[in-house]
Computed example of a mutant assay.
Amino acid sequence: MHILYIDESGDTGQLPAQPGANDQPVFVIGALIVDAAKIGDLTRDFIDLKTRFYPGLVGECNKHLDRILPEIKGADLRRNALRGRHNVRRHAVGFLSKLLLILQAHDVRLLSRVWVKPLGQRFDGRAVYTSSIQWLYSSFENFLHDQDSLGFCIADSRDPLNNAIVAHSVFTQKFQSSSAAYGRTLELPTFAHSENHAGIQLCDIVCSALLYPIAAEAYCSGHVGNIHVQPGAAALRRRFGEELQNLQFRYREPLGKWNGGIVVSDPIGLRNAAGMFALD
């Protein structure tokens, strides 16, 4: 049995032709595939990492396992890694480095859709989100087939209406009589609050502290000049690009095309995901 944990970074709003100071130029939705037998050890290692790097955050927790509750948000790590003072940056990067080592040690695999927003054009956030979830489910299904396993999906909760719309988009594909999909994924996505799910917290950090800033810098430099496009993210790409690349689960489709892993949709520069991993 494997679990697919899903979270996102950025918003699904349209990007103006002249982006403002806080307009978000990319939307990232990512997922971590975790062997269910390793969730306990992964959770304990993550709690230990939180305790080591952020003792003040977990200091008021009376019991060790209660330290899962206070979250280290990926957006805060992103700010510290890119705009903090030297020691703050070094601390954040050190935490991210250890976190990726934990993911590697537990054979966690990464899937992500990165959407670069066009300038001043329609960006259908609902369609983007639902199609991304369907793509994650399809990629997860291929992973489960490769592993001869069954799966279950837990996604970070948004709001009841959006949760229902996304779940129904999977429902119609899974149970349509003509060509039912996702046979190895046992149910529709379950939407949960992240406080008690190490998998969701880890996914948030990967999406918000790594994938989002790297994508914004790699694909939006030159046409978006605001707080979300930070030149310092190039250092994150140099430091972590190879590790992110190695975490991917990719597979060949019947006609030989590669799919899965990190997929970038870039209507402006028409660049592929290679920009996430290495400097040009």
Rank of each mutant, 00 (worst) to 15 (best):
232 G>T: 11
171 F>Y: 15
96 L>Y: 00
250 R>N: 10
199 G>N: 06
43 T>M: 04
69 L>T: 12
265 S>A: 13
34 V>W: 02
177 S>H: 15
265 S>Y: 13
252 R>C: 07
85 R>P: 08
236 L>R: 04
86 H>L: 15
101 L>P: 03
156 D>S: 12
124 D>T: 04
279 L>P: 05
261 G>V: 05
1 M>E: 08
170 V>L: 04
195 E>N: 12
107 D>T: 10
65 L>F: 13
264 V>S: 02
129 Y>Q: 09
58 V>R: 05
207 C>K: 01
240 F>I: 00
135 W>E: 06
162 N>P: 10
249 F>T: 03
57 L>R: 02
16 P>Q: 07
104 Q>M: 11
142 N>G: 14
107 D>M: 01
40 G>K: 08
208 S>L: 04
252 R>N: 11
44 R>E: 11
170 V>W: 03
72 I>L: 07
64 H>L: 12
9 S>F: 07
140 F>N: 02
239 R>H: 11
205 I>H: 04
157 S>C: 09
152 F>R: 11
2 H>C: 00
78 R>D: 09
204 D>H: 03
76 D>T: 10
260 G>E: 08
201 Q>W: 05
176 Q>A: 14
112 S>W: 04
90 R>C: 08
241 G>K: 01
83 R>E: 14
240 F>W: 07
266 D>Y: 00
158 R>K: 13
168 H>G: 04
38 K>C: 01
11 D>H: 08
170 V>E: 01
215 A>N: 03
137 Y>T: 08
108 V>Q: 04
